[in-house]
Design a protein around this nucleic acid. Sequence first.
DNA 1: TTGTCATTTCGTCGTTTGACGAAATAACAA
DNA 2: TTGTTATTTCGTCAAACGACGAAATGACAA
Lengths: 120, 120
Amino acid sequence: MREFMAITKALSDPNRVRILLALRRGELCVCQITALFDFAPSTISKHLSILHHARLILSRKSERWVYYRLPEKTAPVAVREALDWVHKSLAKTDETKADANKLKKILNTDLAVICRRQKC
Amino acid sequence: MREFMAITKALSDPNRVRILLALRRGELCVCQITALFDFAPSTISKHLSILHHARLILSRKSERWVYYRLPEKTAPVAVREALDWVHKSLAKTDETKADANKLKKILNTDLAVICRRQKC
DNA sequence: TTGTCATTTCGTCGTTTGACGAAATAACAA
DNA sequence: TTGTTATTTCGTCAAACGACGAAATGACAA
C-alpha cells in the first residue's frame, strides 16, 4: 500500500505527469526538463525526486549532467501499469502535443546553451 | 487532462483507495462505509464526493439511504483502467483483507442498527 | 587547488487538503 | 404538520504541498 500511494501521490500533480509524458521519447537531462517548464530548477528537482522515489523514473549521471528516464521492463508491475495508464490516457491530448513540440526545439539546441540560458 | 487529474487526485488519499476496494463486492450505503472507518460521517461524505466527482463511483438513493457503487462497463476508459490498476495492485494486501473482514461483519448487521450506532 | 556550473537541499510562504463539529437538507414516520 | 434520521454543506484548524531563492554539494576545467 505504501508503494502504491507513493505512485498515486506522484501522479497527483499535473506537472509531474507532464514530465512522465515528456520522457516517453527517451531520457532527458534536468536542464532540458527545466527548459520545458516555467519553473525554477529547484522546483523541477523536487518533482523529479518525488517521481524517482515512487520508482516512476530512473536517473544516471554523465559528465556534468543528470539524466532521467522511464524505467525498463524490470520495473515493478504497479509502476509499469501506472505508466501505461498515463500514456494511454493522455498521449493524444493537446497539452501533451504542445509539450512534445516545445521539447523538439529543446532537443535541437546544444545542452550547454540550454543550461546557461536559465542560470541553473 | 482535467478529468485525468481528478482521478489521480482522488486516488492520492489512502482512505479513498480503501473505499474503492471495499466497494468491489457490491454497493454500500454511506452508513456502512462510515462504519468501516474511524472517521466522522462528514469526512466520509467528502471523500465519497471526491470519488464521485472523478466518476470513480456512482450513487443512488433508496428509502432513507444513499448507496455508492463502482461504475459498470459504461464508465470512461480512463476510469475503468484506474480501477483495474487499483484492484490488481492492492487486492491481495493485508490492509485490504482486514477491511474485507471488518466489512463482512458490517454486512451481517441490520442497516438501521449500524446507522444509529454512529449517530449520523 | 580554485573556480565554474548543474543539481540538490533547505527554509519560507501562500494555498490546498483532510479532519472535525455544527448547521442545513431531504426523506420518511408519526 | 412535526419530529426523526441519513447525508451533505459549511467554517475552522492543523498539516501537507508546491512554489521560490539562497546556500550546499559534487564534478569537471583551469
